[in-house]
Simulated assay, not measured.
Amino acid sequence: MGAVRFGVDDIANVRFAMSPLWETVASYQAALDPGLHVVHLPWIRSALTLLRDADLAERTAPLKSLARTPPPRCPLAEIEEELAFLSPAPGLADAVRAWWGAAVQPYWPRIRAVLEADIAYRTRQLAEDGIRQVFAGLNPQLTWSGDTLLSPDLPESAPGLGGAGITLAPTAFAVRCHFLTEDGPAQPALVYPTRAVGTLWERRDPTGDSLARLLGRSRAQLLTYTSSPATTTQLAARTGLSLGAVSQHLTVLREAGLVTSHRYRREVNYAASDLGVALLERG
């Protein structure tokens, strides 16, 4: 059983972040072990097709031996920012770039939306229930004993955090928690499985069905695409509607109780409510 001890300053310095570098490396590992990542099978099928390309397979081969990444250093880092802190092992950064561009970047908007929605949920939970409940909800393996966080996924000999705090980073491509550290000023990070990952690859076509007749084709499309959290810009890109039209339709859907909205920094994510999900399943 591993443990991490928290002081008062550590609790005050808990923050959230996303890591495109972690998602890139973890997604590569998921593609190589589909049995542990059944929820990602729609994506894994296309990823394995990519790996049949001999050139891409050779360029990404160094990722097979990369077990962990540096902890994320800022909440909304770009992939190139994170690569600056990656081990200088020959070919490693190029391998990450190759896999990112081929297999992750095309889907990053929807992956990022799910991660942002998780962070919005956790920060709201922090405000309502406190940090202990936040940690309790991250993973069933995490438990508290006094001032110490316990889990089989934590290092057995981890010292206290020393007031530096910890970064909590949701991930779509992990089934357990991971504890990331490195020498230097970066906070340690606890990577944990995100909520709602099962919605990531869902696809529904509302056109021509009872849902479209009930709501109108455009609103039915928008409700369908909010089965995973998305911003107004993302929804406009997916549906071909203007930003103004998307905003107007979302207002109607929200007032009807079919979607909810959650702000994170400068962006607002929209997601189908329980009522909206029930309507989608029946439609």
Rank of each mutant, 00 (worst) to 15 (best):
R97M: 15
R97D: 08
R97V: 11
R97N: 10
R97G: 08
W99Y: 15
W100N: 02
W100A: 09
G101K: 05
A103V: 07
A103G: 09
V104S: 00
V104W: 03
V104P: 01
V104H: 02
Q105S: 11
Q105Y: 04
P106W: 08
Y107R: 15
Y107W: 14
Y107N: 13
W108E: 11
W108C: 14
R110F: 03
I111N: 02
R112I: 04
A113Y: 01
A113Q: 06
A113N: 13
A113I: 05
A113C: 08
V114K: 03
V114T: 12
L115Q: 14
E116T: 12
A117S: 06
A117W: 03
I119Q: 02
I119E: 03
A120R: 08
Y121L: 15
R124L: 11
R124M: 10
R124H: 09
Q125K: 13
Q125F: 13
Q125Y: 10
A127R: 13
A127L: 14
E128R: 10
E128S: 14
E128C: 03
D129S: 15
G130K: 13
G130P: 10
G130M: 10
Q133C: 10
Q133G: 11
V134T: 09
V134R: 08
F135C: 10
A136K: 13
G137M: 10
G137K: 02
L138D: 00
L138V: 02
N139C: 14
N139M: 09
N139G: 09
L142A: 08
T143P: 01
W144K: 02
W144D: 12
S145R: 15
S145H: 13
G146Q: 04
G146V: 06
G146W: 05
L149S: 04
L149E: 07
L149V: 11
L149Q: 05
L150F: 06
S151M: 08
P152M: 11
E156L: 05
E156V: 12
S157I: 08
A158D: 10
P159E: 05
P159C: 08
P159Q: 09
G160C: 10
G160M: 12
L161H: 06
G162Y: 09
G163C: 05
G163W: 02
A164N: 06
G165R: 06
I166T: 09
T167F: 05
T167H: 04
L168E: 06
L168N: 03
L168D: 05
P170K: 06
P170I: 01
V175H: 12
R176F: 14
H178E: 15
F179E: 07
F179P: 09
F179N: 06
T181N: 00
E182L: 11
D183G: 05
D183I: 11
G184R: 03
P185R: 06
A189Y: 06
A189R: 09
A189K: 07
Y192D: 01
P193S: 07
P193R: 04
P193G: 05
R195H: 01
A196R: 13
V197H: 03
G198V: 07
G198E: 14
T199L: 11
T199W: 15
L200I: 06
W201I: 04
E202Y: 09
E202A: 14
R203V: 14
R204Q: 00
R204Y: 01
R204E: 08
D205M: 02
T207F: 10
T207W: 11
G208V: 00
G208P: 02
G208W: 00
S210V: 12
L211I: 01
L211H: 01
L211G: 00
A212V: 00
L214M: 07
G216T: 07
S218M: 03
R219Q: 03
A220N: 03
A220Y: 01
